[in-house]
Design a protein around this nucleic acid. Structure first.
Lengths: 217, 217
DNA sequence: GCCACCATTGTCGTATACACTCCCTCGCCC
DNA sequence: GGGCGAGGGAGTGTATACGACAATGGTGGC
């Protein structure tokens, strides 16, 4: 099943697969992940799985206890707040550089993502929205031109997506309307406007998250 | 040498060891790291070394090319700027929470680090200063109480130390005097002062770095 | 003399096999 | 009947072995 497509780079694929499954909620927080089960699930040996789990541990998605096993981490309310606050200061910085350094190719990908996002929202396929949301922000990070900044944002964005997925998804239409405005600013190479819009965008997302978590409490 | 002490967790030690060697300049940027050589260097097999290299790749210290090998990354001027700017916004946030959540034990460790730092500076052992510097900031991150924030700062701090180590170390006395003042603010549970001082501290460090890199250019 | 092609070598990628540790269960003793 | 200790099972940690790919050097042809 998994061995027919790409025998070249198994661990990298395993990292993506496990991380996606964690974000999508296939593996619940606190759940124990056995190397053997994951190896069977992805049709590879234990060695690539081990490497993948190590990477995910470094990224903060799982926690490994020696001779016991790896467990999916549990996000507390406080940590979710930290993630959102962190993003609220880093993303505007990123957007300002993206407006200056973006390439036409990246702009095209952003346009495509905005279209896909709108379609998903209109057709009610809300389970696809968080992933598109993450990708939109990842491309902006890539467009900033800074590899360090991009890597930081990438990890952060993935964790944010996780937080959102755990607590369901709301505020989808507004979010994608704002994405569209940000795209326009990037197309016009307007650094200040892009930075300001992204700041507002994150602020509203943060507020929405807080309101939602307080409702559930 | 390595097999007699702890048979429990070899890869974690390998990660620390390789990262330290990269930061200390034992492995120069662009240098090729062979798994076999590292395995022999630390007295373990290739498997733990592979896991360690994967973690370091996720952290951004090395880059792996399939079937070719792993290479120590090369930091550009722009990326160094990004790291410093990133720290300048994250650390004050971290200091404010540390002032509120610190434990007496953590405060004690900070005091000890300040003393060690002063001693190292006075006795002219400047090669030890970057590591103490990193640890000071890492303990503050730990004292913030946020695991997510702590992990972010930890990675960031290590890369900053790397940047500093590559371009030699200056401004040592001022840095540790400022560390002492920050410590006082933390002891007094003064969130605002701690945050403000750390902001100044990072700003001055950034300025010093920029000046130094422009002098060398 | 120069360029292209091929063999060789070195290194990574993966699978298999074994040793050690933790946890759970069963039996024994108090 | 309850608590404690030993034994077995499950799973991780590590080492070894083999296959796959890229880089390099040599040889043949042009």
């Amino acid at each position: 099943m998994a061995g027919d497509k790409g025998p070249r780079r198994a661990p990298q694929e395993a990292v993506r697969a496990v991380r996606e499954d964690i974000i999508r909620g296939v593996f619940a927080p606190g759940e124990r992940l056995t190397e053997d089960a994951l190896a069977a699930r992805y049709g590879v040996s234990r060695v690539p799985v081990r490497e993948a789990l190590r990477v995910l541990e470094a990224e903060g998605f799982v926690e490994a206890k020696p001779y016991v096993g790896v467990f999916v981490k549990e996000l507390s309310e406080a940590e979710a707040e930290d993630l959102l606050e962190l993003r609220s200061v880093i993303e505007p910085m990123c957007a300002a550089r993206a407006a200056a350094n973006r390439t036409p190719e990246q702009l095209g990908r952003l346009k495509e993502l905005v279209n896909l996002g709108w379609d998903a929202v209109r057709e009610g396929r809300l389970e696809e929205v968080p992933r598109l949301n993450s990708r939109f922000h990842e491309v902006i990070a890539e467009a900033s031109g800074s590899e360090v900044l991009g890597q930081m944002i990438r990890q952060l964005s993935q964790k944010i997506a996780w937080v959102y997925a755990v607590g369901l998804t709301l505020r989808a239409e507004d979010s994608w309307r704002e994405h569209e405005e940000i795209l326009e600013a990037l197309a016009a190479s307007d650094s200040e406007r892009a930075s300001a819009l992204l700041g507002q965008h994150i602020l509203r997302a943060t507020t929405a998250y807080r309101r939602r978590t307080r409702e559930s409490a």
